[in-house]
Design a protein around this nucleic acid. Structure first.
Lengths: 456, 456
DNA sequence: TAATTTGTACCTTAACATTTG
DNA sequence: CCAAATGTTAAGGTACAAATT
């Protein structure tokens, strides 16, 4: 029975006692869900402490915890130990292409589509091959043997030597991540990630109910000691070793080895995303190389070769072969052989390398322009498609909307944040996306002026 | 403290007491996992009752339950109330293409690839279009506007009238199902399905930790009263209204309306898979038509138009727009515009309809051959790509392996079963997959002889 | 920095449902 | 059809950890 009378007590949310039914925790959760969905509780409203509600409803604290947990996994509320439970905002942070008119795109990272002329030439050649029909049927769900040979070749360029038995073809980088998370982890599992990471990965993890545990970084990437501190808590770790998104930080060999050692010692599962390896130094080895028994390694061709064809490669440890390959059947059945054929042909006829070379030239030029307006810290990748610009706190307010008013799409660091609170403020600027270098200059100049007052 | 001494007690599995550590339930689960993975416990081994283990380890019963639950979600064990807990077999039932030599394929359903000549002609035309490069970039992740118009047109042929705002392009039928399950349900949710259903759907649900609740059918499909009986338990229902896989049963309009009524009344989410609508009667309306506020409707073009290009269409209620579209970004980012263009062109230039017509002719011919050997029940779809053949219990033993020895791949009904135990025995015969009608006849004759002794 | 607030994790108790014999 | 065996579920109790003041 309640210790006090609550009749005149002010709670921000009061479930109706009379509507309680068995099971208690479900009936409470559905009342809360109803009130949030119907707008009676606005985003960021602080709910009463679990203890107060439990007392008010005359039930046990942990029954209340369970009710809240149900709503939390649905994304309706979020809880901070020591602080309280709050109604979740319904904003989505995932980044994807919108068809804007007259907006300079510096938000989403376009992979420099100028090289697509070289791709379309190869497409034209392929349709004249006499085996075209064999590319249009159901066979080889994991990739045709010579498609896998090309994949192996491409993965070797990133300094990972794999048997074709440990390689499959996926429908792009995001698809590889979805595959890795659904097959290697269970809902409720925890995964270590950088404090700032790729927002579509954050949303994917949310969708699959995999909890992210933020780990601090320094100028060389994730700090090994910080990973070690959480590794009894987590089942795996997600890393982008070259040109981490959004910070543009690349790990040196020492850091890669240090992280690998921790992953091996604690038998974590490594999800390595090597999407930008083609922009880094040629002698860097993937972390997976040092974690031969616990890795899933994804290397998309969307940024390096062509984005529209949606082809990614995934390589994995022997012990994961069954899980990954079965996951591919479950999520996709297969990836189109025609699309894989185009990428295979580009790799085999050397055009893929030309494309990479050309992209590097173009992005070097754009980075040079960038330095006319802002600095590039020494630890960040020179040839990055995007830059991570620190801004003062007072400049951060509504900065995305304010930039959009000036005709520029950018993203604020909060989108990339896996923690609840942010300290430092940044914006990520995609310098590969503006249509040409003139547009890039216009964008950078506008931003410089916008930030100007507050930057000094 | 244990009631009895267990030193001389015979348990099929004895966790080492000395290795217990906190948290108890995790340490027990990992000991069990270790013993299963390393082969100390063989599939179908019956584990000791939870109560006995709890007593032996001197811990609480529900701590033991929790430990077992951990292993169960990983697929290592399965439990039957009243009977016991058993080590799970590591077999996977998912059906996918293998590259067999000299085997007559009557297992996996190939969609009659003979019509792919017509597809490759259209592919050749497309590469000469001057907008080819625009098909190779990042834009329009949900589908280009005129691709969505073609999707609308194709969905209308299945008698569902949708706005393009409620349609997206996916990477095929399985991808649509993965999308629907990840976005519309949470792990632990329950979904009503036919007792026999599509095995890749069963595996997908397992992968995503969505529990399937089998619902009985009669000769017109799922029985409405049986669905009603479980609908307080489940959050949704998965239905294949035309040519249910594997039973080849098609629901009449009355059955569709009856099921729709229950879905509406109990606010279930309908996942409707209309993959075979092109083979059914032209005046049948999808169930989604009668459930305008609770449906996700998938119609793959893999069986009807072309399987290799991996294009599916998904239509959905207004209230699901955000969830589905966000799910597409999370799982795939986008589906290749080039591939969508090919299917669009085939729909717009009328070739898709010719393909369907031709497929219907070919499958009619093959069904005619089938009737020379086996009967087709009156309630099953005439133009089905596959047949569902009842067999006597004594014929069922090892039937897949025995058929394979004779050079024929077939699938036994247990693969399709969502319940633990089966009563009746069937085999599913794909009659669309043998290379030609001669091969089909050889396959059917061989099976007839194999079953001959036991069929009478 | 220490005390307090607040959410989290683990384990226990007890009632319940299904299968088996 | 009942009783026993066996797994499942809800809810209570306690210790702990993180954030706040």
């Amino acid at each position: 029975m309640p210790v006090n009378s609550f009749d005149d007590y002010l709670l921000t949310w009061k479930p109706e006692k009379s509507k309680l039914s068995s099971p208690l925790y479900r009936s409470i959760a559905s009342m809360l869900e109803y009130d949030i969905i119907n707008g009676f509780l606005l985003p960021h409203t602080k709910l009463p402490p679990q203890r107060e509600l439990a007392d008010y409803l005359d039930i046990n604290l942990s029954t209340m915890t369970r009710a809240f947990k149900l709503c939390e996994v649905k994304g309706l509320i979020y809880a901070i130990t020591g602080s309280g439970t709050y109604v979740a905002p319904s904003v989505r942070n995932a980044i994807y292409s919108k068809e804007y008119q007259n907006i300079i795109e510096m938000g989403i990272i376009h992979p420099i589509d100028e090289t697509n002329k070289m791709v379309s030439d190869t497409v034209k050649n392929i349709v004249n091959k006499d085996y075209l029909e064999s590319l249009l049927n159901y066979s080889y769900p994991l990739g045709m043997p010579y498609h896998l040979m090309a994949a192996k070749k491409w993965i070797e360029k990133a300094n990972l030597d794999m048997s074709v038995d440990n390689i499959s073809i996926t429908s792009g980088g995001q698809n590889t991540l979805a595959l890795a998370l659904t097959t290697m982890f269970n809902p409720g599992d925890k995964l270590a990630v950088d404090v700032y990471t790729y927002p579509n990965f954050i949303e994917l993890a949310n969708l699959l109910h995999i909890q992210l545990v933020p780990v601090k970084s320094d100028e060389t990437g994730m700090i090994p000691a910080e990973l070690e501190a959480v590794c009894n808590l987590v089942q795996g770790v997600y890393l982008i070793p070259t040109c981490q998104n959004p910070t543009a930080v690349t790990m040196d060999m020492q850091r890669r080895k240090e992280l690998a050692k921790i992953i091996n010692t604690h038998r974590l599962t490594l999800i390595e995303d090597d999407i930008f390896s083609f922009l880094g130094e040629e002698n860097l080895l993937p972390i997976s190389h040092f974690v031969p028994n616990h890795f899933v390694y994804g290397i998309s061709t969307s940024k390096s070769i062509n984005s529209g064809l949606r082809i990614g490669y995934v390589a994995y440890s022997n012990q994961f072969i069954d899980k990954i390959q079965n996951g591919i059947f479950n999520l996709n059945v297969k990836t189109s052989s025609f699309n894989a054929e185009v990428i295979t042909e580009l790799i085999n006829n050397g055009v893929a390398e030309q494309i990479v070379l050309r992209k590097k030239q173009l992005i070097q030029e754009r980075n040079k322009i960038y330095t006319k307006y802002f600095n590039i810290p020494a630890n960040e990748l020179k040839l990055s498609f995007f830059r991570w610009l620190p801004i003062p706190l007072k400049a951060a307010v509504n900065i995305e909307a304010r930039a959009l008013e000036q005709g520029i799409q950018i993203y604020h660091s909060d989108r990339f944040l896996t923690k609840k609170h942010s300290e430092a403020q940044f914006i990520r600027l995609s310098i590969s996306s503006p249509k040409d270098t003139n547009e890039l200059e216009t964008g950078l100049l506008t931003l410089k002026n916008m930030l100007g007052n507050t930057m000094k």
